[in-house]
Computed example of a mutant assay.
Amino acid sequence: MSIDAKLFLKLYGFVSGKQQLKKALYFINRGSSIFFVALYTGCVLWLLFCLDRFLIKFLLIPALVLITVTILRKIINRKRPFEALGIETVVSHGKSGSFPSRHASSAMIIALSLHQINPAAGYLCICLALITAVSRVLAGVHYPLDVLAGILISFLFSLLFFI
Rank of each mutant, 00 (worst) to 15 (best):
G94F: 12
H142Q: 11
I34P: 01
F155W: 15
V134D: 06
M1F: 09
K22Y: 09
Q19L: 14
L148S: 06
F99Q: 01
G150M: 11
W46D: 05
R102N: 03
L51R: 15
S101K: 10
K57L: 14
M108W: 11
F58I: 02
I67S: 06
S2H: 08
I153M: 06
L64C: 10
H103K: 02
L148W: 09
K95V: 00
D52L: 10
L156S: 12
S33M: 03
L21F: 15
T70N: 14
L45T: 06
Q116T: 03
F49Q: 06
A129N: 05
S105W: 08
F36C: 00
W46P: 00
I87P: 04
L64N: 01
V37W: 09
A149L: 09
R30Q: 05
K95G: 08
S96R: 15
L152Y: 07
L112V: 10
K95L: 00
F49Y: 15
F82G: 04
A104V: 10
I151C: 03
V141E: 02
G17Q: 09
W46I: 08
F157R: 10
L159T: 09
H103P: 02
H93R: 13
L72R: 01
M108D: 04
L7E: 01
G94A: 10
G122I: 08
K22M: 15
A24F: 15
A104R: 07
W46M: 14
S101A: 04
K23D: 11
I28F: 14
N29M: 12
V147W: 08
S135H: 07
L47P: 05
F14C: 00
S98M: 09
L152V: 12
L160S: 13
S98N: 05
T132M: 10
V147M: 08
V44E: 01
I153A: 09
V69A: 01
K6M: 04
P144G: 08
L48N: 06
S98Y: 06
V37R: 01
K10H: 10
V134R: 11
P81M: 09
L114T: 14
L72N: 02
M1L: 10
G31V: 01
T68R: 05
S158A: 13
P100N: 05
E83Y: 06
H103I: 01
G94C: 04
L51K: 15
L25G: 07
G86C: 07
V69Y: 01
G97I: 08
F82H: 01
L59E: 07
L128C: 09
L45C: 05
I131L: 15
G150I: 11
L114N: 02
V137C: 04
A84Q: 13
S33I: 04
S101E: 01
S2R: 12
L9H: 03
F54S: 07
F54R: 14
V15D: 06
F27Y: 14
G150V: 09
S101L: 02
A129S: 12
L51M: 13
I71L: 15
A38C: 11
V147F: 12
F161D: 03
K23L: 09
L39C: 10
L7Q: 02
C127K: 10
L9E: 12
L47V: 12
D52F: 12
